[in-house]
Design a protein around this nucleic acid. Structure first.
Length: 256
DNA sequence: AACAACTCCAACCGCTATTCG
DNA sequence: CCGAATAGCGGTTGGAGTTGT
């Protein structure tokens, strides 16, 4: 391989590492207009200084419409365990049974949450859910399983539920509330330390607090990139911009 | 407050499978 | 059929954020 990695002399080395907003928008924009096609050709045609493999991964695991982010629900957890028992490490096959989840996400979840920790009983899992939202979650699970893709990112109903870390319920709740409050307060650019990772369920991670590893850098960068007076302050703002962007694009039938 | 250990996940790497000329 | 190109999969890693001391 390496054909796409080695570009003609004089061109900069192929970029690696985290994707920037600009790259994401270029990729989304190109695919929305031309479809997926050949990834290597796509990378070249879209003037993305990435190899096709990287483009494909970014699209499939993050940018593709219908990708669910946020914590794995207990129902999904149970499904993953069951599917893994019968399929083994066939992450892509397992992912086929979990609409919106990617093989990479499931793989990570398995390694970090299941492989390293004993399974919680159904009763325990139920107990972690906030009573007021458990019913809503059950309803949303039913709804989400019927739609594998939508034209816009993230359905807020898909994972809009809460539970707190079993061993530290007070701490978990406190952290969640602080995080949301901070996000709602609209931290200015460059200090979006409480940025959410996704507009929907990722407001809280599965164990009661959220992860911001990627989003902080991302939204910070977004702030510097955002044009036309758009001021990015949190994940909601970010996804509003992305949704607006999607809304401006023609939607090819073949792909979506 | 500072540091180390730990957790999580996006992205890379290497390999295999599939497609195509 | 063969070899090259491309796509896809699973394993692994790097680094940011969190937690504990």
């Amino acid at each position: 391989m390496g054909r796409t990695c080695g570009r003609a002399g004089g061109e900069p080395a192929v970029r690696k590492g985290p994707w920037t907003l600009e790259e994401d928008l270029v990729l989304v924009g190109y695919i929305s207009q031309h479809g997926e096609g050949s990834w290597d050709n796509l990378a070249r045609a879209a003037s993305l200084n990435r190899n096709g493999k990287s483009c494909r991964l970014r699209w499939l695991n993050y940018l593709r419409p219908g990708v669910r982010r946020g914590s794995i629900t207990p129902a999904e957890d149970a499904a993953i365990r069951e599917l893994h028992a019968s399929l083994g490490n066939k992450w892509s096959k397992i992912a086929e049974h979990l609409p919106g989840r990617t093989d990479n996400e499931i793989k990570n979840y398995w390694r970090t949450r299941i492989q390293r920790r004993p399974a919680a009983s159904d009763q325990q899992q139920q107990a972690y859910r906030a009573p007021a939202t458990a019913a809503a979650m059950a309803a949303s699970e039913g709804a989400s399983s019927s739609s594998s893709a939508s034209a816009s990112h993230g359905s807020s109903a898909a994972g809009d539920w809460w539970y707190v870390e079993p061993n530290h319920p007070e701490q978990g709740a406190d952290r969640s509330q602080k995080s949301v409050a901070a996000a709602a307060a609209g931290v200015d650019s460059g200090s979006a330390s409480s940025a959410l990772t996704r507009r929907d369920s990722s407001a809280t991670a599965g164990d009661g607090y959220m992860k911001t590893s990627y989003s902080d850098r991302y939204y910070s960068e977004l702030s510097s990139v955002a044009a036309d007076g758009v001021k990015m302050v949190d994940a909601d703002s970010f996804w509003n911009v992305v949704d607006d962007f999607w809304g401006t694009l023609p939607v090819p039938d073949a792909t979506f």
